[in-house]
Design a protein around this nucleic acid. Structure first.
Length: 477
RNA sequence: GGCGCUAUCGUCUAACGGUUAGGACGGAGCCCUCUCAAGGCUCAAAUACGGGUUCGAUUCCCGUUAGCGCUACCA
């Protein structure tokens, strides 16, 4: 039975690298009819926060992928400690009474540290005595070194991996407060939950040798491993909240109006390829095409800048998706963004506006910038010079607007009727259609760049249009 | 420092020894057009460097350089 897990630790918001790891796990599970497990790795009580936990769930739910089983490591402490005890009893781990170092980040630079002197060879009796006396200790794995061994595993992405035990330090299993370390808790749970494939970031590639050692000590067969290339910022460093800010948070994408399908599609393209030229893919297509063979080995840059926080490809994928959406559905998705901006809008109005802006927005939140004039009572102040058409002057603008008043008053407010009426008017004025439309557009929209005129007029309604044109004429005085 | 991983257009990637090194995003230009978009067409843009192996290397091997990761009683 194929079982995979996504195991975030709630020490920060859900970041896009984690989201991608989740997605690849999910795709692998679904492709093979396996089980997707969500496990919250919350053994670091110092750094865990409720807010992080919420951010992770918010983010994952937004992706609309789901999972089959859910666990929390903090509820499985007994299992971890029992395994630590068992490893200790087998003589494969020892107590290290060296006080925890205040971390200066600089210690041991320049040389390889393998273990603290004296602790490895402490006799069991002596060790028990000191422990019984209440002395604090960390439990360390006794990495075999006499003779040294090669620890090997085959990674589904990076191929055969081998490392000498001479290069693996005696890592901690239990901290001096008795809490399991990540390595121990993770392996204990992976074994207990019968995880068959571990799909995670490449930053764990070298940790995997330690994990193989723990699985061995636990008498368990190590699962299959598949490490994913890291997501890096344009500066080449690993994405992090501290360095790169909210652009790495999944909720930032959600709040900007990315569609989860487009976002997932984008993340899949980072470090994976279906090997043909497809880029826009549905979930079904992604699931069908996914395999570890398609995963690359080099780091992948998420292309963002200070001015433009979103990768242009993600934005394009999102825009494509928006264009392909049924109007009804897009209107419904847009409505919350409009309301959040403080505008009163209803379904019917939104339904009318949506086709006018559908191919003009890339993110859902763009609705505010593109369609604000549909919702306001009074247009924001604009430069009257904007009313002047190409190759025209202020008097032409006034002529057009004054002509528009009776024409629009008499017109039926539908797209085709409006177009016919305004084109006829431009002929009567002996000016180009464009020169006729531009002043009207600016008068009703308050800007030059706007959706197509006739649909806009229709959506705005006769009253509003006439009112705004009158205002524009005043501006030209 | 030690150990490990990686290296194709600006970015994401394709090419499992033989291609005019392909696609996409982004950029530039043209067309379409009531503005803006959308759409169509065109263009610029890459095999890090040096050695091998081979009739032939983007592809295989070695070295250099660069980047990244791990080297915590974080995960």
């Amino acid at each position: 039975m194929l079982r995979v897990r996504f195991a975030p630790s709630p020490t920060g918001f859900l970041h896009i690298g984690s989201a991608r790891t989740f997605i690849f796990n999910w795709l692998y599970a679904r492709h093979n009819g396996g089980t997707m497990i969500l496990r919250i790795d919350d053994t670091d009580v110092e750094r865990n926060t409720e807010a992080s936990l919420n951010s992770i769930f918010d983010g994952l739910r937004w992706l609309e992928l789901g999972w089959d089983e859910q666990y929390r490591q903090s509820e499985r402490l007994k299992l971890h400690q029992d395994l630590a005890q068992a490893i200790f009893e087998k003589g494969l781990a020892y107590r290290d009474f060296t006080p925890a170092q205040a971390d200066d980040g600089e210690r041991r630079q320049g040389e390889t540290w393998l273990f603290n002197p004296g602790m490895r060879e402490l006799s069991r009796a002596e060790s028990d005595r000191r422990a019984a006396a209440g002395e604090l200790f960390a439990l360390r794995y006794r990495v075999p070194r006499e003779p040294v061994r090669q620890i090997c595993f085959k990674d589904a992405v990076y191929g055969e991996q081998a490392k000498s035990t001479a290069d693996i330090e005696d890592f901690a299993l239990l901290r001096s407060d008795g809490m399991p370390t990540y390595h121990l808790a993770s392996c204990a749970d992976d074994a207990d939950l019968r995880i068959s494939h571990i799909v995670r970031g490449q930053d764990h590639l070298t940790n995997t040798f330690k994990h193989v050692l723990i699985f061995e000590a636990a008498g368990a067969t190590p699962p299959q491993f598949a490490h994913l290339p890291l997501l890096v910022a344009p500066d080449g460093t690993k994405l992090s909240k501290r360095r790169h800010g909210p652009v790495v948070s999944v909720t930032t994408y959600r709040d900007a109006g990315f569609l989860p399908h487009a976002f997932v599609n984008f993340l899949c393209l980072l470090g994976w390829s279906p090997k043909d030229d497809r880029e826009q893919m549905t979930r079904e297509e992604l699931t069908a095409a996914f395999s570890f063979e398609g995963i690359n080995r080099s780091n992948t840059t998420v292309n963002f800048t200070e001015e433009d926080p979103f990768d242009p490809k993600a934005v394009w994928l999102n825009a494509e998706r928006i264009r392909a959406m049924p109007v009804e559905e897009l209107a419904a998705q847009l409505l919350p963004f409009v309301s959040a901006a403080g505008f009163a809008a209803d379904r019917a109005k939104m339904r009318m506006i949506t086709p006018l802006i559908q191919e003009r927005i890339k993110l859902l939140r763009d609705v505010i910038a593109v369609a604000d004039f549909f919702f306001v009572d009074e247009l924001a102040p604009y430069d009257p010079a904007e009313l002047i058409p190409q190759k025209g002057d202020a008097s032409m603008a006034r002529t057009v607007l004054e002509k528009a008043l009776p024409v629009l008053s008499a017109a039926e407010f539908s797209h085709d009727a409006l177009e016919a009426a305004l084109r006829r008017a431009s002929e009567e004025l002996k000016i180009k259609a464009g020169q006729m439309f531009q002043p009207i557009r600016v008068a009703v929209c308050g800007r030059k760049n706007a959706p197509p005129l006739f649909g806009t007029l229709e959506a705005l309604g006769k009253q509003t249009c006439l009112h705004r044109i009158e205002k524009a004429i005043e501006k030209l005085q």
